[in-house]
């Protein structure tokens, strides 16, 4: 490991030796964290203060209170959180499977109409959701081909997000870079398509899995138009819907919105840390072998 350590990264910045580099490095890290995370952390501190002043940032509050959280719970935030968990759990699982499968076809097969399919998939990402809302709601109430009504069910928030152009696009680009030799060897050994897909191609997609996992999580977690259209009443609300209501509800203050946001944020951070591990594993294993 030590021999190749200096070749682990493109810049060699994070592995550079020497006391000067050490200081420079930590300075750079500090700037990055302050610029990107500082403002958010300090605002979230306001989730614990009684009245947030919207003109200044505080890192150390004068008075700490859990009132904002209590009021957020009064507004049913816990239930919304559970709904969000359910939707993101099943939604992400489906989304990854569907993306991998579609990407396999697009990256590893040549077939007539491939470019059209690719373009169709890209086009699904082009229309703003705010506009599609009404036509989409008609479809949700009576799904074409099967004729099922998905409104009022959490399933209605899961199935439509199972296919996501971005994941497919990212996976396709990554799969294209996987050498074909392994696949051909497996084919000569008599392995079928599914076998090749699951045991040859999938394991090589690990770093990319981390990426689409993280982005997929954020995408589903932040979904707001779809749950709005699907939910019949507040019992099926997810957290982003509740955040929108809290933002403009004149009866509650900024503190309650921040408290709810903090609750919404934690799972994303945890998911990110967890999937980064997966992502990192892909990275280091590649480095060691290289």
């Amino acid at each position: 490991m030590s021999r190749t350590e200096r070749f682990d990264t493109a810049l060699g910045f994070t592995t550079a030796k020497g006391p000067v580099m050490r200081v420079v490095r930590w300075l750079v890290y500090a700037v990055c964290v302050v610029v990107f995370a500082g403002p958010l952390l300090s605002l979230l501190v306001n989730a614990f203060t009684p009245v947030a002043k919207p003109t200044e940032l505080t890192l150390i509050p004068d008075e700490i209170t859990l009132d904002n959280f209590a009021r957020a719970f009064d507004r049913g935030v816990l239930g919304y959180l559970l709904n969000s968990f359910f939707v993101v759990g099943f939604g992400l699982l489906l989304q990854i499977l569907v993306s991998l499968s579609a990407a396999y076809a697009l990256a590893r097969k040549r077939f007539p109409g491939m470019r059209l399919v690719f373009l169709l998939i890209l086009s699904t990402m082009m229309l703003p959701e705010e506009i599609l809302a009404i036509p989409l709601s008609l479809v949700l109430a009576d799904v074409p081909l099967v004729g099922v009504d998905l409104t009022g069910t959490l399933l209605g928030m899961i199935i439509p997000v199972a296919a996501w152009g971005f994941s497919i696009l990212v996976m396709t680009e990554f799969m294209k870079e996987i050498p074909v030799e392994l696949e051909e060897a497996a084919r000569i050994d008599g392995a079928g398509e599914f076998r090749i897909f699951f045991s040859v191609v999938l394991p090589l997609c690990r770093p990319a899995l981390g990426v689409i996992g993280i982005f997929g999580f954020v995408m589903i977690w932040d979904q707001y138009m779809l749950p709005l259209l699907v939910a019949d009443d507040a019992g099926q609300y997810t957290l982003p819907l509740a955040l929108r209501t809290l933002r403009t509800d004149p009866e509650v203050g900024l503190g309650v919105l921040l408290a709810a946001s903090l609750l919404a944020l934690l799972p994303s951070v945890i998911a990110f840390l967890a999937m980064q591990r997966q992502f990192m594993k892909g990275l280091t294993s590649g480095a060691i072998k290289g």
Binding site: K53, P54, T55, D249, G253, L254
Partner: peptide, 11 residues
């Protein structure tokens, strides 16, 4: 919704 806090926090 952004105006209310300005009054209650003494801006």
């Amino acid at each position: 919704s952004q105006a209310h806090p300005l009054f209650e926090s003494g801006v």
